[in-house]
Design a protein around this nucleic acid. Structure first.
Lengths: 340, 340
DNA sequence: TTGTATGCGTTATCAC
DNA sequence: GTGATAACGCATACAA
């Protein structure tokens, strides 16, 4: 059976409250008593029961991070950053995987399990614009993603449109004119897919060009495998392609594997850009030009917003929900640079 | 203020116990009462307080998974698998990152925070053979790694020696004789590094060859960057190299980036093998030959062992701690296959 | 089948 | 400064 504060109190010859005071480093405890309690704690090997503490305090010191899948590098690296940022604030992170499905994202929002932690950082993928009302929850939550999706929920977004436009303009600047778009699939018009697609189209438009839909390779999930499939589909249509804008890095890497297999050289024949700046892309050959959304900043901001709400309560109803949009930076690498 | 069982009981005109019975799907509740309680729950929007339940039950339904870093693909994919396996058993996973440092691994074992969950799955990297006593903890724990490290602790290991030997023999079978070893660094002789190195050396010995230490590229951390560094170091020594055995996949990928930059063709000039079978390696070009340790099985086994101990108590002192070694399978891909 | 009383281990209140 | 006692919300004997 576990050692409780009561046991420590008995051994130290003090009250439970005093033990609690010592354990929690409260002032107003005489050095003598403190020492006596410390000794008793060591002697008994006492360790606090966090559950009891949580019940009494009304908070757990844990937050939930819900992401599609950890095996996708972007979310792995994001989770890494969130865990570190939360740790710096004294919070522990519980990770839920939604698989990017709408059902499981809704479940995260409503299930009783959610109440195991103090708050939620949700990175939605399957939720649609019509789901906005569901997001008006009464517990602390921060959304990673676009405003479009929701109403009054604090959120941290990245400059999806700008980033994709920059990548596309970069390819256009290299003289590429027959650009393929890899990865779009978004009926509802919200979410990263739609926004990055918009950036892509805006860049073409700005150059007076039009996108041939046959050069779009759709990909429902954003993985290396679907990126490869999408690239294959585009090439199989027989159209010439001299540039590829992939909506994220793994899509780009999947596409590059197909280009390689078809004997197309990157960047000489086809220049490629991705999005996310996952570490992997710095070590592939050719290394991958990509858009860096500043994951660390996004993670830190999301955690800070959540912790702030945890400590200071919800924002007054007459104030807008906090909204942060992290800037993107284009990282030009070998996949879009003429070796010469 | 939150809705409690008491509130529900009052509205439904029953006792708290009855509400509890309904919520927990206990039998012996008349359909009428059940319906009345259900209605009250819906009306009030009641959601159970997990913390109170945990305190009363003496367990939380959460387990901790401690890994070095989520941004390392192997651990991201492992965590993914552990989360799924735990979910299938009704458990939620809290992830701690140790950075692979001994101090933080010890902290995970001893800190009070550990008591937030029912048990621990620890994947140690920094712990040394001398730390075995620390691992004799009195709470449910499963270790991912070798027996060498510990005494009576349940653990799940992979066939590190066999896997590395198979990879090395594969290269030798291709006629490669000047093999570089990338990534070893292990003063203590325990852990994956030492074991895989042993497999490598055994294979050479079996072929009547000797390993030239100058062909060893040491790497403290196992990342793409350190793999690249180590490869550079070996090549800079001016020795010829026609094969590379990297102790894991990211090391191999880092090494391959350097080989590419130095104008060495893979596999024609240098054949390369890794270890882990991360998804990334299936899409690089050339794709990466590697050793598949069966992550899914390892994750599932670890979770099952832990959950079993959680449900059925510790193994009797006169029985040995459960020990599972997952078999490895060599996955031969383009990085070690002559195109012709 | 349902209700009552008690405990889980901690923190908070308010005397002393 | 320190102690007694009442929450915190749920589960579980035990009674009815």
């Amino acid at each position: 059976m576990p050692v409780t504060m009561r046991d420590v109190a008995r051994v130290a010859g003090v009250s439970v409250k005093t033990v609690s005071n010592v354990v929690n480093d409260f002032a107003h405890v005489s050095p003598t008593t403190r020492e006596r309690v410390r000794a008793a704690i060591d002697e008994l090997g006492y360790q606090m029961n966090f559950t009891a503490r949580s019940l009494s305090l009304g908070r757990t010191g844990m937050i939930t991070l819900a992401v599609p899948e950890l095996r996708l590098p972007y979310f792995a690296e994001l989770s890494d950053a969130v865990i570190d940022a939360a740790g710096a604030q004294g919070y522990t992170v519980l990770i839920e995987q939604t698989g990017g499905s709408r059902d499981r994202e809704l479940e995260v929002l409503t299930s009783a399990r959610r109440r195991m932690t103090d708050g939620l950082i949700l990175s939605p993928l399957g939720l649609r614009a019509g789901d906005a009302p569901v997001l008006e929850v009464d517990f602390p939550m921060v959304l990673l993603g676009e405003r479009a999706l929701h109403g009054r929920v604090p959120h941290v977004a990245m400059a999806n449109v700008d980033g994709a436009r920059a990548a596309t303009e970069h390819l256009l600047g290299l003289g590429r004119r027959r650009l393929a778009l890899i990865g779009t699939f978004d009926r509802e018009g919200v979410g990263a897919g739609a926004l990055r697609t918009r950036g892509f189209l805006e860049a073409l438009e700005g150059a007076g060009l039009e996108h041939d839909p046959h050069r779009t390779g759709e990909a429902l999930a954003w993985t290396r495998a679907t990126g490869a499939e999408a690239m294959r589909a585009v090439l199989d249509r027989g159209l010439e392609v001299d540039g590829v804008v992939a909506l994220n890095d793994v899509l780009a890497l999947g596409a590059m594997s197909v280009l390689h297999d078809r004997g197309l050289r990157v960047p000489d024949d086809v220049a490629v850009t991705g999005f996310d700046d996952i570490e992997e892309g710095r070590f592939t050959r050719p290394s991958l030009t990509t858009v860096d959304p500043d994951r660390e900043l996004i993670a830190r901001t999301a955690v800070d917003l959540l912790v702030d709400r945890l400590r200071n309560g919800p924002v007054p109803a007459d104030q807008p929900a906090p909204e942060v949009v992290a800037d993107c930076v284009l990282r030009v690498r070998a996949s879009s640079t003429r070796p010469g």
